[in-house]
Amino acid sequence: MTRARKSLIDLAATSYYHLIARCVRRAFLCGDDKYTGQNFDHRRDWLVKRIKLLSSVFAIDIAAYAIMSNHYHLVVKVNRREALAWSDDEVIARWQKLYSGHVVVNRLNKGKQLDRVTLSQRDGIIAQWRARLYDISWYMKSLNEYIARKANKEDNCTGKYWEGRYKSQALLDQQSVLSCMAYVDLNPIRAKAANSIEESDFTSIQERITHFKAAQNEESQATYVTKNKSENLPLQPIQLMTLYEHELAHTIPFALLDYLQLVDWSGRQLNRSKKGHLSKAAPSILSRLNIEEAQWLESIQRFRHLYSNFAGTQQCLKHHAAKNDVKWYKGAG
Rank of each mutant, 00 (worst) to 15 (best):
K112C: 10
L114P: 02
G124N: 14
R122N: 02
K141N: 08
Y139Q: 04
R116F: 07
A148R: 05
E145P: 01
Q113E: 14
R149K: 14
K112H: 15
L114W: 05
M140E: 07
L114N: 04
D115F: 08
G124I: 00
V117R: 11
N144T: 13
I125N: 06
Y139V: 05
S137C: 04
G124A: 12
A151Q: 07
V117H: 13
K141T: 10
S137T: 14
N152M: 07
D115T: 13
Q113R: 13
Q121F: 02
W138P: 05
G111V: 11
D123V: 02
L143P: 03
K141I: 01
D115R: 02
L114F: 07
S137F: 00
R149P: 03
A151N: 04
A127Y: 05
S120Y: 04
I136K: 04
D115S: 06
I126L: 07
G111R: 08
L114M: 07
Y139K: 03
Q128R: 15
K150I: 03
A127H: 10
R149C: 07
Y146L: 11
S120R: 11
S120D: 13
L114Y: 06
T118K: 09
Y146P: 01
N144V: 09
R122D: 01
Y146E: 12
Q128C: 12
Y134W: 14
M140T: 09
T118W: 04
N144P: 09
R132I: 00
Y146A: 10
S120P: 00
I147H: 04
E145N: 14
S120N: 15
L114Q: 07
Q121D: 12
